[in-house]
């Protein structure tokens, strides 16, 4: 190889390396102090899953998580449902570790869900038809559409 090609390879590797380090740090939020409060955990998950959704959409996502705890096919605790491997993308990619301010909208939405508000009337699944790649979910009966999400039983 000529000297020119050597240099070219070297610069390519350096740029690639820098880009990798930068993107790695952006994708994974560093875990911070964990709050044992159930609402905080719920809010972190809902924030990761339904950040841009209207208020009622966030209440609905929180309600789905709570409905799962009462359903025989899912774990009986909020932590069990949230941390079930593969259940929520916000958990798989670490977005759940962003702390939520108790004065924020998503926190209030979770409190309302824990107080029994269920806009979905008992749903245990939801999906974004524009983003989901899971074909099985389309076989579930859709109860309602709120924002970008369809809620199903």
């Amino acid at each position: 190889m000529t000297k020119r090609t050597y240099l070219f390879c070297l610069y390519a590797i350096l740029i690639g390396f820098v880009l990798t380090v930068v993107t790695m740090n952006l994708t994974y939020a560093k875990p911070s102090a964990n709050n044992n409060n159930d609402v905080q955990l719920l809010a972190r998950c809902v924030n990761g899953e339904a950040r841009g959704e209207p208020y009622i959409g966030q209440v609905a996502v929180a309600a789905v998580i709570l409905n799962r705890t009462k359903h025989p096919s899912f774990p009986n605790t909020i932590a069990g449902v949230i941390y079930q491997p593969g259940a929520f993308t916000a958990v798989s990619d670490g977005q759940i570790n962003v702390p939520i301010d108790p004065n924020s909208q998503v926190f209030k939405a979770c409190q309302d869900a824990m107080n029994g508000y269920d806009p979905t009337d008992g749903c245990i699944y939801y999906y974004n038809p524009e983003k989901t790649t899971n074909k099985w979910i389309y076989s579930r009966q859709v109860v309602k559409t709120i924002g970008k999400h369809k809620f199903a039983k």
């Binding site: 209207p54 208020y55 806009p119 859709v142 559409t145 709120i146 039983k153």
Partner: peptide
């Protein structure tokens, strides 16, 4: 009107938005 709900209890869903917040 936002849509219908087809759960255990069938419903009509309405909503409105304002600067103060949403009503559903």
């Amino acid at each position: 009107f936002q849509g219908e709900g087809n759960g255990t209890i069938q419903t009509y869903h309405f909503a409105s938005s304002s600067d103060n917040g949403d009503i559903n």
